[in-house]
Design a protein around this nucleic acid. Structure first.
Lengths: 252, 252
DNA sequence: CGTTCATTTGAATATTATCAAGGGTAGTGG
DNA sequence: CCACTACCCTTGATAATATTCAAATGAACG
């Protein structure tokens, strides 16, 4: 059961597609209005962009875009966590990014989507068709500038992750990952968390770090054994000795 | 012996800094004028940008920017090949990008440079101070758009390299690397080369692929032994069986 | 012709992956 | 409320792959 946009765009997985939100109050009530790329738009311009977008709800596990597909949609993440992933012909997977509320997903100004986008939790998106978004962006340099800033940040992050993938050992990878999570899950500008719920399963952590699930499990157990972290629940992590964990991460 | 700009900007390594090229003909004769980000600017705007830039020559091995430094300069690559690299505290290095003529380097709109930039060959740059470039870019949406496109492409490339670093074995890494080189060294839009000179030493190849120099050497020797490639010289590679090499690369 | 540096090759070792069970937990239905 | 079942995670033993250490080869340069 696929539903179709009136714009002849299709979303995989048969998720409910609400009517266009012609009501400008959508943006005024938007949870990420101060952080998403549309934050710098004037009130009336934001209204115009809003009329191009659609609020969409995604169930955990649903894939929004497939690697290699024509790039037909882009979106702001309003709520939830999603993964960006690439995979080899024989099914090995690498998670190349994890996105959170206010992040932007999809590939504007290009032909095909270079990686899959899959919801890790239930998620809500503010979805645009490529044609509509690209056109609007070209006419609004302020929006493109925000998008550029975000893309530059993403690139920095991707490249620093390349150092992890290419040159760090399992222990260092896990330590770096935990510290990164503790920072990213904290509220904007606040101190990193010492206790948090991982949004990822062990397998997904392995896919982020280029390891196997067994190695992830063993490394976490080891860090627990030596008292650097505690694991109060399947997905709960507590950093008990941040300095020691930083030592393990061996970052530059 | 460091030389200083009159704009109080410093370039490491004591490379010669020519006077500003107030002569607009610099751009008209520029080798990369049709491909660099300035390509879409109007003639007079390009002249204005030109007056902000300086032609700089870099010797092979020189580092133009250091990881973690304040981001004070950006540049177009006019000629030569440079590497972008990150490293761990104990000196392991990962090359996170290789740039060629017409590429853009540096981190606009940000505080610090996330990775080092080092010349692999002698190189010529069209160099701008951050303040001057950022200001000009903000006033020229067309330029920012080109920069956005380039950054999006770089991000795609970085992420597909993450799949290689995290999930491919040595054989696959080497095969993917050779195919990538044969494509990137071909002229824009032309068929991939079957024979080319590597711009990288064995150690640098290792740093790109997250391997050791010995593993790179062994894999190349093996590929030669089974007749998929030939190695006519230290740095020369000939692809003798592209289909087989593609098989080895196991890309999605 | 000798020196130097990059590369290749070899042998031993280390790290991580793979294969194979075994435990825990949550959710389901009796 | 208590099995039962799935699924995820952990643990153990073994194997594969790449690294490390060491030495030899070879090309480039003065």
């Amino acid at each position: 059961m696929n539903m179709h946009f009136d714009l002849a765009q299709t979303l995989p997985g048969g998720m409910p597609v609400p009517a266009p939100c012609s009501d400008a109050s959508f943006c005024q009530r938007c949870e990420v209005r101060d952080r998403a790329i549309c934050a710098t738009l004037e009130e009336d311009e934001r209204g115009a962009l809003n009329r191009l977008g659609r609020r969409v709800t995604i169930a955990a596990g649903q894939t929004v875009m497939w690697e290699g597909d024509d790039a037909t949609i882009v979106a702001n993440v309003i709520d939830g966590t999603l993964k960006l992933s690439a995979s080899t012909g024989d099914g090995r997977e690498q998670i190349v990014g994890v996105v959170y509320p206010s992040d932007f997903i999809g590939r504007p100004f290009g032909r095909s989507t270079p990686h899959s986008v899959t919801a890790l939790t239930d998620a809500r998106l503010c979805l645009f068709t490529r044609g509509a978004f690209d056109g609007f962006a070209r006419e609004h340099p302020e929006l493109e500038h925000r998008l550029l800033q975000r893309t530059l940040d993403d690139l920095d992050r991707a490249r620093s992750w390349m150092l992890l993938l290419g040159r760090k050992n399992a222990r260092e990878k896990i330590a770096t990952f935990l510290l990164d999570m503790s920072r990213r899950l904290a509220r904007e500008g606040e101190a990193p968390l010492d206790r948090f719920d991982l949004p990822l399963s062990r397998q997904q952590i392995a896919d982020v770090l280029g390891l196997t699930i067994e190695t992830v499990s063993r490394q976490l157990t080891d860090l627990k054994r030596i008292g650097i972290i505690a694991l109060p629940g399947r997905r709960m992590v507590e950093i008990r000795d941040r300095a020691a964990l930083l030592d393990c991460s061996e970052a530059a």
